[in-house]
Structure formats: C-alpha cells, structure tokens
C-alpha cells in the first residue's frame, strides 16, 4: 500500500520585506508579499526524498490560510508534491496555534496519512509548537526537530542534534515529524515541475467540511491573545573597541557581558 505523506506548510509574509501588524494585531498580509515559509521548504524536500526512496508514495501538501496561500501550495507542487489541500474560511482570521492545530488535524484525518512532515517552525510566528500539538490531537507519536529522517519497514527514524548530544529516534507509523534547516537544502522547482503543478489537484475545504464550529477558531476562539505590539526600536550605534594592546580582552569582556561566552 502506498505511503501517504502529508506535509503541513504555512504561507508567510516575506521575511525580507517590511512586516507590520494590522489594527487588530494580526499579521498585515496586504503590506508585504507572501511565500511558502522557507523552513517548510525543508519539510517538502524531506518528504520528496522519503517518497523517492519508497516504492510507492503520495505526498499531499496542506495549508490553512487565505486565498493567496495557494501560492505556497503551488510552490510545493512545483517542487514535486502530488496534490494539495487548502483550508480557507473567513472565520479563520486571527486563529492561534491551538486553533490552527485543530484545523490541520481535522484536514489530515480527512486526507488520510501515514506520516505528517512539518518544518521546525514558521518564519513569522516562530513558535515551533504545531508538530507537537498535531501529534497530540492525532494521537500518534511525535519525532521532532530532526536533521536526518528516514522511513523503513513501517517506522520513521531520525537524528536530532542537540547542543551536547545527538539522539537517534524512532517511531512506529503513523507519526508526526518535524525537520530542521540542517536536514538538507530544498530543491528549486524545475520548469517541468512548474508546468506539471498546474495540472495537479488542489482540494479546497472550509470549516463546515471539517466539522469545525466557527467559535473554536478565529480571534474569538483563540486561547492566546496579543495585547499590544510595538515596532522594534531602531538599531543603536554599537560599541567600538579600539585596540591599544588590550583589544582582545575588551572584546571578550563585551561578549561575556552580553552572555555570548
């Protein structure tokens, strides 16, 4: 039977753009171009590699987001994913991570899965909690923050690199994994991939398709609330160390003071 892989991806504002919050303190999506979160590209790449190794695999790429989020799906399809699922509903505006994990979990169950692959975090919210929330909601094992991942004999194995040690982990499928930016550079879509992506199926779902009530998601259903947001203050001038024989020591003292060493 074919290995069913679902990659959960996020459409985020371009991190190189000038990003702002809207009046209700949600992300202002109109002010800056959006794209497939770069950290999720690693997840798509690992899913593609797992599928290439498997005899028979099918990759579904899934996102929850506004109309424009289709761009993120199209990018993943161009890279080689087989089909896409887009959950879009006006009531989703302002949904927090808990709410998003509910929608993703329902959509993943709707699609059917053996393995869910996520990036390590989004490049906008950067919370990195979704893989764990998803595993909990789906009731399956989680193997997170992998820099190497493999699927063999109904198991997923991988390596998680910490500061002090590397762990070799393993879980029975079905499972949820997340991969880091050390897992291997994502491929660039080829023109053939871009052309093929046009013909691939993108399924659109809304909350009622997934049996989710409006008050479980959105700003009203959020468990976390943003009270205020302030622009980061402009960068200050910095400290100039002039070397008069003691430069090295001064640098070390500065780094120690900033708790870098």
């Amino acid at each position: 039977m074919s290995l069913r892989i679902v990659v959960a991806v996020k459409y985020v504002p371009d991190a190189t753009g000038d990003r702002h919050f809207a009046e209700d303190l949600t992300t202002d999506r109109d002010a800056v171009d959006g794209l497939l979160s770069e950290l999720d590209e690693y997840a798509v790449e690992q899913a593609l590699q797992i599928a290439e190794e498997a005899d028979d695999a099918e990759i579904t790429v899934l996102t929850v987001g506004p109309e424009d989020a289709k761009d993120a799906l199209r990018k993943a399809l161009s890279m080689g994913a087989d089909q896409a699922v887009h959950v879009e509903d006006d009531a989703l505006h302002g949904t927090d991570a808990l709410g998003t994990s509910l929608v993703l979990a329902k959509a993943i169950e709707h699609t059917g899965y053996d393995l869910v692959v996520c990036g390590m975090a989004s490049t906008d919210g950067t919370m990195g909690v979704l893989p764990a929330m998803l595993a909990e909601r789906l009731g399956v094992p989680q193997v997170t923050l992998l820099s190497e991942v493999k699927v063999e004999d109904g198991k997923v194995t991988g390596r998680r690199d910490g500061d002090a040690a590397s762990e070799q982990l393993e879980a029975q499928l079905p499972a949820v994994v997340s991969v880091t930016d050390q897992s291997g550079e994502a491929r660039y879509p080829s023109f053939k991939g871009i052309m093929a992506a046009k013909k691939k199926k993108v399924e659109s779902l809304d909350l009622s398709d997934l049996g989710i009530e409006e008050d479980e998601v959105g700003l009203a259903g959020a468990w976390t609330k943003v009270d205020s947001a302030a622009e980061r203050p402009a960068r200050t001038a910095g400290t100039i160390v002039t070397d008069e024989g003691e430069g090295g020591k001064q640098l070390a003292a500065f780094l120690a003071e900033q708790k870098f060493i």
Binding site: R187, Y188, P189, S190, F191, K192, G193, M195
Partner: peptide, 26 residues
C-alpha cells in the same frame, strides 16, 4: 551542477530527451 539539477540545461527541449518541455523563451 546546481543549474543542471534544476533543469536549466534542458529548458527548451522535449521531455523525451530529458528536457523540461519548455521553449526558447523560457
């Protein structure tokens, strides 16, 4: 090598010869 990996050298050629099925404009 990376340019090859993303299919740039095959852009204007048909897929049956390993190309990308694009054209000279691409």
């Amino acid at each position: 090598r990376e340019m090859g990996r993303m299919g740039l050298f095959g852009l204007p050629f048909p897929e049956e010869y390993g190309g990308m099925g694009g054209d000279y404009f691409a």
